[in-house]
Write a protein that binds this DNA or RNA. Structure first.
Lengths: 197, 197, 197, 197
DNA sequence: CATGAATGAGACTTCATTCAT
DNA sequence: TATGAATGAAGTCTCATTCAT
């Protein structure tokens, strides 16, 4: 048994350390900023040398990229899904709903993106993240609609998106708050659609 | 004559250089991030040595602070004004309206703040900027209102605030877009108020 | 007077430090190899921080390049001169003679090149140095000559070139040894020419 | 069967891997320099981890030493042979002839030595290689001869030695070129001897 | 007002090496 | 035999900052 356990733990250790690095890195990147966070800092919290990080990742940016990919996957799937749906109100509402749900898990990533935009812009990954937001924005909007409708659609997305970060302070259950934000978002989309007709 | 001219022009030139430093610095901070922007970079664009900046400012952070203060002033006045008004719907709407107007001039500052949050957090100035947003949020909200109303109020502020940065892509006149955003914001505040009653 | 001296010494200090860096760097590069020499090492001998080197040079390679350019100049002039002469025996002998003289000053550079070829190959400067040798080789050779003549011509250049580094051990005055090497080189060129006819 | 085969193949495979490591290492050391070549690089080309190299060699330097010993053996034998011969012209010519032949196989080693001198100097092995050249030089020279004769003898060795590396560019069969170089070398030795008398 | 020169701290990165498995 | 994981030393470079001139 002991042998079996040891044998099983060996390949796990790597994945485990990798994951732990990503975890700690993401937290630090969010709390202290990507540029301001040093690898030594991350390594110290993990109880390893900073050289050890280079066994698991090729560079600092590589750590960030790996984190972003892991967390951004669901959003990408959502965008891909949205691209294949007809551009109806129902689609836009469904999109917003799914986005709201996906955001629960991806929130840290987006917070990271939002709080480090300027620095990330020059990193290859920066473009990718911005692209995701742009893609969502495109799917939510109706290009031919009047300005008022456009603004309403934008507001719907902003409400769900930024609300996820801004409403920490508000009392109440997180899930409840998310539903309230989503409710308002859906309402705004419906109103935008009504204006469009 | 030469002497007199020099004597007279000195304080002007000095103030002028200060302003030019702030201008260039703000642009770089926004475009490339506060941490990523080096003083050498700023100095080079101004055609001086980076050591020269220290004649006008005590430190890199000092440049940032001076910029933030200059641009943030109007917002502070707005908050001060709001604090002295009764907490009525009219006040909240007036606040949002004035904020929308102030944002036109202060937009660069807020973009800087938003895109460098993580880094600014540890700088004394970071707190100040976040405080402003928090203060506005507080003034816009009605603490005892139900969650739906709170979310609506939040959305109103987010629409006006983030819309100012996010709606670049949309076609149309900037001022027109601002008014559309403000219009929706006011509507949301009104609806929040109605729910509250 | 003291003032004048000080005023004069200020602009000199820079050129002086630059030169001293080049001097020390060249020595270390030759003695311990380019890759194996650390900037800290050079700085320590100069009594400055290694960061100071970066005030005068943009990179380690930049130091090497600047040294190579300074020492390689005369060789370049020689090649340019040779390119404009007719391809006679006299020209080739004159070329070898001048090369032998130039080598006295450029010897350290060529020793550096020779002893670090493998590493320098990937540095942009490496190509440049090899190009110089190739150009000289081309000027010394007579393309249409039979193999024996070619070998003699090559040998003439190798004798003068490598002899400058290899004959340290031999007793005798350096200038005398140089003349002996050159004498043999000229003889070999003449013999090559005779074979060619 | 499987067991027997494995048992039998193990020492062979081991020797084989050792040889492959030496082979790849030598090539990389020559092409990219000893210092600049990393063990990871070598291991990657061999399809193993860099840690695996430590099963076959104790250190990076150990790889180099083993390579040098393997390739340098014939030269050592030649020197040993030369030490026991009388110091006649015939001996010196025979020495040069044998050296020219040995060089064909040992060329890679000498190229490595020549192109990495600076780095090798501080490695114990560096001395060894330089010693070989010095020993050859000593055997070729006649200490009491006049400078002209010494230079001729040196030139003979340099012609054969450096010619082996420098005459790549020249057209013609390699063996033919080698013979031409040797021919000139022998001639130079003879002329040196004539001068000596 | 501004520059030239230098510093000290710290960042990312690479490498040879070790050791349990 | 070889790998996965980690280490510690070292290296190059950048930056904000200082100070005499």
């Amino acid at each position: 048994m002991a042998t079996r356990e040891a044998a099983a733990s060996t390949p796990n250790r790597r994945r485990d350390t990798r994951r732990r690095i990503q975890e700690v890195a993401l937290r630090h990147f969010i709390e202290r900023g990507y540029e301001t966070t040093s690898l030594r800092e991350i390594a110290e919290e993990l109880g390893v040398t900073h050289a050890a990080l280079y066994y698991h990742f090729r560079s600092k940016e590589d750590i960030l990229v790996s984190v972003a990919e892991g967390l951004g996957g669901p959003i990408d799937e959502l965008i891909a899904w949205g691209d294949q749906q007809p551009g109806t109100l129902r689609t836009r509402q469904e999109l917003l709903t799914r986005y709201s749900e996906a955001l629960t898990a991806a929130a840290p990533l987006f917070q990271l993106m939002q709080e480090n935009q300027a620095v990330l812009r020059k990193l290859s990954i920066g473009q990718t993240l911005n692209d995701r937001v742009a893609a969502l924005s495109r799917l939510i909007h109706v290009p031919e609609a009047p300005l008022e409708a456009q603004v309403r659609a934008s507001s719907a997305l902003m409400t769900v998106h930024f609300g996820a970060f801004s409403l920490y302070a508000l009392p109440g259950d997180a899930e409840e708050k998310r539903k309230a934000l989503l409710g308002l978002g859906l309402e705004l989309l419906a109103a935008a659609d009504a204006e469009h007709r």
